[in-house]
Amino acid sequence: MSTFPDDLLFTREHTWVRVDDNIATIGITDYAQDAMGDILSVKLSDNDSSVEQDESFGFIESAKTTMELISPISGEIIKINEDITDDLGILNSDPYDTGWLIIVNVKDLSELDNLLDSYEYSDYVEEEVEVE
């Protein structure tokens, strides 16, 4: 059963964001990692590059598929999680904490209004399951 912490906001593309002042930490959801299976590689935009809300900031690949990573928010990437280079397993085992992907200096906090809260995202994912 996937979990969706209520201190996060989510996209329909299965990424999450945690915002503290103007600093946003971004990763993939528990639902996404579970659907992908063991993640084998990650390719992220460069540090210091800018990302836009609803635009790609990289890709993750498992044996089953490759998934485009869509940013929940616009801003400048100020840090990339180097720990995943050594241990991709944390993306599967701890996607909301040590398995984060990038940290962004947020350009426009009002963009958060476009995101889903944990209840809305949970409903969205359940709809997907019902469709099946």
């Binding site: 593309e13 790609s56 089953k64 598929t65 490759t66 998934m67 485009e68 869509i70």
Partner: peptide, 10 residues
């Protein structure tokens, strides 16, 4: 076979 998922389309 191989797959890409992007914006809910595969």
């Amino acid at each position: 076979s191989a797959q890409l998922r992007s914006r809910s389309v595969f």
